[in-house]
Each structure stands twice: as C-alpha cells, then as structure tokens.
Write a protein that binds this DNA or RNA. Sequence first.
DNA 1: TTCCTCATGATAAGCTAATAACAGACAATT
DNA 2: AATTGTCTGTTATTAGCTTATCATGAGGAA
Lengths: 216, 216
Amino acid sequence: MRDTKEGRVPMVVIKRLPKYYRYLGELVEHKVERVSSQTLADMMGISASQLRQDLNHFGEFGQQGYGYRVEDLYQEIGRIIGLENEYNMVIVGAGNLGQALANYPNFSKRGFLLKGVFDINPKLIGLKLRDNEIMDIDHLEQFIQKENIAIGIITVPKEAAQEVADIMVRAGIKAIWNFAPVDIKVPPEIVLENEHLADRLMVISFRLKELGFEED
Amino acid sequence: MRDTKEGRVPMVVIKRLPKYYRYLGELVEHKVERVSSQTLADMMGISASQLRQDLNHFGEFGQQGYGYRVEDLYQEIGRIIGLENEYNMVIVGAGNLGQALANYPNFSKRGFLLKGVFDINPKLIGLKLRDNEIMDIDHLEQFIQKENIAIGIITVPKEAAQEVADIMVRAGIKAIWNFAPVDIKVPPEIVLENEHLADRLMVISFRLKELGFEED
DNA sequence: TTCCTCATGATAAGCTAATAACAGACAATT
DNA sequence: AATTGTCTGTTATTAGCTTATCATGAGGAA
C-alpha cells in the first residue's frame, strides 16, 4: 500500500489535510453522499483547483462527471493522515495548559492515547488528573521506554523545555509537541511541532495595527 | 510614522516576526550588543537572505560593515508588531483551556490584558479565576462595548462557537482567536485566527506515518 | 444504445516566496 | 588618511505553490 504517488508532499498540503477531514466529517454527519470539488472548495473558502491538486498528491479518489463520494473520501483522508493507528502520549508539565490538554476529549477519540502526566513539583505528584496520576519527572525516561510512548507533549516553563525534550529523545520518543515559548532542538529524525501561542497573539496584534493605519 | 515601506507585507513574513522577536529577546537577555544577519539566521535555522529580505519590508535597521544593534532591532520589531499598544481581551468558555489561557502570564506582560471571563454554565458563574470572576454569557455583549474589548478568545465547544463569535462581532469586537475545532465565519474586517489544536496532532500523525514508510 | 452534460485528473501558465549574488557603505586598522 | 574587509540593502535567479485550462471518461436521459 503506497502512501504518496511520488516524491514528497509539500508541508502546506499536509497542513490542509486536517481541514479537509474536518469539513468532510461535517458532510458525513449531515448524510451528504456526494460532493464536487467546486462545492467543497466553496464551503472551505479555497479554490477547486487547489483541492483537486492536493488530493492528487495521494491518488485518484473522484469520478468524472460525478464528484467524490463523501464517506469514501473521508475515510481515505483519515487513512492518509494515519488515523487508523494508535499513538501513546505523555504530557510533561501538569500546570494549567498541561491539565487542559490532558482533559481534551478529542484526542483519544482519534487514537491519541494519553498514558501519563509528569511534573517536577512535589505538590502535584500523586494527584489524579482524570485517569492519570501525576508522576515524578524522574520516572519519565523509563516510562517512555516501557510504555512505548510515541508522542511527548511539553507544557513546562521555557527554561526546562529543552531539558525535557532531551530526556524524551534519549528515551527514544518519535515526536514532540512543544508548547513552551522556545524553539526546541532535536535530531532530524524526531518529528517536532512547536506551538507558540503567544506568537499567534502577536500576529493578531500586527494585523490590528495594520488595520488601524488603513484609515488614511 | 509609516508602517510598511510599500504595499502589503505577505502573511508568511508576518508570521515570522514573533520568532525574530523571541530570538532577539534572548540576545538582549544575554547582553549581546550587535549581531549580523548571518549569525542570527544561523541561530534560527533560516537563511540570512530571508532575514534581510524580511526586515526590508519594514525599513533599514542595520548598518553595512557592522550588522544590527540587538537592542534597537528588538525594540523596532516590537513596534512593528504593535506591542507598544494595549489590548483588552475576554475569554468565553471557562473550561480547562479557557482557564489555562486565563492563567497564562506571558499575555499581560506584552500588553494583552484579560478583562473578563464568561461561561454559560451556572455552576461556574461567580467563581474566581485569578483576578477575574466568571460572568454570565448574557452580559458578554454589553461588557465588550463598555470595557472596549478588542480581542475575544473563544474556548467553548464547537457547537456554540459560531454563536459566540456572532455576539462578539455584534458588539464591535476587533479580533477573534478561536480555539473551537470549527472554522468560524466573520466579516472580513474582523481579524480572525483559528487555532486548531487537534489539527496539529494530525500533522504529527501524518509525519510519523510518513517516517515509518521510509524504511524501504 | 447514443448523445449530452458534468466534473475529474493532468498539464500549463501565472504568481509568490526563497535563495543567491553583488555593489556600495561603513567600520576597523594602521 | 588610506586601505582592507565586513555586512547590509537590493536586484536577479531559482524554486515552490496556486490558479486556469482542457481533454477525457463516467453518468444520466431519451
């Protein structure tokens, strides 16, 4: 079973896949059976060309003169994203954000299973967080290895973030999702996503300012 | 005082500004006085060309044969982003994520001031969240107008997100930062940032899968 | 069955962004 | 003051993405 038709798929395209998946999910819920690239693209606010082009990176899913079968395409994109797999996760940093993510229900629904939550603060260790007891960060490395953890989520202060990442990498983790406001460095074979929430606010700030200056 | 040299600045460039700001902040902390585009670009893992190109959208901040004064450039980029302004914010949805964001210290430090937290759940209304008492969503519209709220953060379930956004728009809000897993629709003059956390996990999933298939 | 319409997949054209190259200005040094 | 080397701002080039176009084949109607 082949993943991509040929060559690498551009990152911009990959980032759009979850959006396609989301909109198709909506259509499935509404029992829509078929959809044309034009209709779907209009819903999403993109061009039909781009939609077709994107899909063609992965294969031919539509039929001329008919369009796409919603259910099929939905399943197909789920497969492309890899949602039929299950991944074990840990969260390191049981502060507000760590707790919020731990309680996020949509993750387990898609096969992302939270197996442990860690912190360095003795006051937090031992507390229950939904199904997970908060563990001492000293046990992190061993835990990752024993429980076959694929994804590590970092929600510690920025000073500790790189150190936590190093432990994860040493333990053989496959991917890191970092929420600390620093760019973590990891070897190239590790999948890394930096989530800089404060950066997003700054983009909003810039755009607000830009708008303000437009009144000339 | 002019913002951009001419024309519109591409979104890709704008998205990089906070990153520049972050790295320059590090240099400031380490009391580094000057830096060349080459050095800074190496630190950030981008090309020196791109860095200079990006900065040239906004003006000339460096000196030939010398480089950039770290402190000056840091201030300058802060100004470009608009960090000298203050913006009032509200959070709607006092669940885990809403609470986490309410307690995020870095926002107020940059002039993003949380003025109120709202929810529809009677059990939550009246509770204290750091400095903010959780208010009934019925008072949201009035509050936005009276307190001159510029930015609305949405952390409600997806079913309620569009409705909340509509109230915000009606009340005259300037920007919306949406964490619900739907694409909210707002008039074009409203600055909108959709933050789809689950999407990020799917990108990680795809990349993990891609990596797995590379062992042929 | 045959013809017509529709909408895909593929190719081409157009556009945007990233990298490379370079002339000129400034700093540093003697 | 003169000279060398550095490093910017800018222009040129290349690469990457997006949009437009079109031939083709499937579906549906008569």
